[in-house]
């Protein structure tokens, strides 16, 4: 009973926040609604018994991605009102495309038939939830069965890092950098000059 209540609360707030993300006028508000949607989906994950995913969602999406969006929204000078012009004009055709896709999906799902052996031959059967926590269960799969994919994903991230540096990093001339050694090597004699100032006169 309480579980069902919690589900409906989280689910309805997630959907409402999702709608608000794309409909509010102020981009900062829309990022804030996005964060609300993330928190509530994390709640849904907890209800499903996937605590690890819930925590990752909060740490990664709320902690990093949403903050990054906030930076982008605040730092770039984009006129969102202008971008949204023509929305109503394109709405009918967009709705038609969406409807066609929906019908197609319905047709595909209607033709769903899977032989029972296929269901049994799952790639990696889920372990008993009572014996291992789900973080441990994920780790046991990720670092054994799927270690190849794990390492490959790491390489993809490395390429992304190298690529970002290659495309954007440039050597700028005339940049003043702090060199600690130079600062320490300075002595009083190099930097302080004593001047005798006569009374009543400037330097």
């Amino acid at each position: 009973m309480i579980e069902a209540l919690a589900f409906y609360m989280f689910a309805s707030i997630t959907v409402a926040a999702g709608v608000l993300v794309i409909s509010v006028r102020n981009p900062v508000h829309s990022v804030l609604f996005l964060i609300l949607a993330f928190f509530n989906s994390a709640g849904l994950f907890v209800l499903l018994g996937a605590e690890f995913l819930a925590m990752i969602l909060v740490v990664v999406y709320v902690g990093a991605v949403a903050v990054l969006f906030m930076f982008v929204v605040m730092m770039l000078d984009i006129n969102f009102v202008e971008m949204r012009q023509g929305f109503l004009q394109y709405l009918p055709i967009g709705a038609v495309v969406g409807l066609i896709l929906l019908v197609e999906l319905a047709v595909v799902v209607g033709g769903w038939h899977i032989s029972p052996e296929v269901v049994a031959a799952g790639a990696a059967p889920t372990p008993d939830a009572a014996s291992v926590t789900n973080t441990q269960a994920l780790g046991q799969l990720l670092y054994t069965h799927y270690v190849y994919l794990f390492q490959a994903a790491g390489l993809v991230l490395l390429v992304a890092m190298v690529g970002a540096i290659v495309l954007t990093h440039r050597k700028r001339t005339g940049v003043k950098k702090q060199v600690i050694a130079d600062q320490l090597a300075r002595s009083a004699a190099q930097s302080v000059k004593l001047v005798k100032v006569e009374t009543g006169k400037g330097i």
Binding site: I114, V118, A121
Partner: peptide, 30 residues
């Protein structure tokens, strides 16, 4: 994702096996 959903596996060999099983009435639309 459609192939995974309808065959229950992402492994090439297992996909081939499960597709050959329902070869009698032809592969599904999915």
């Amino acid at each position: 994702s459609l192939i995974y959903g309808f065959t229950g596996s992402t492994d090439f060999v297992q996909i081939a096996q499960s597709l050959s099983k329902d070869a009698a009435d032809g592969p599904g639309l999915g």
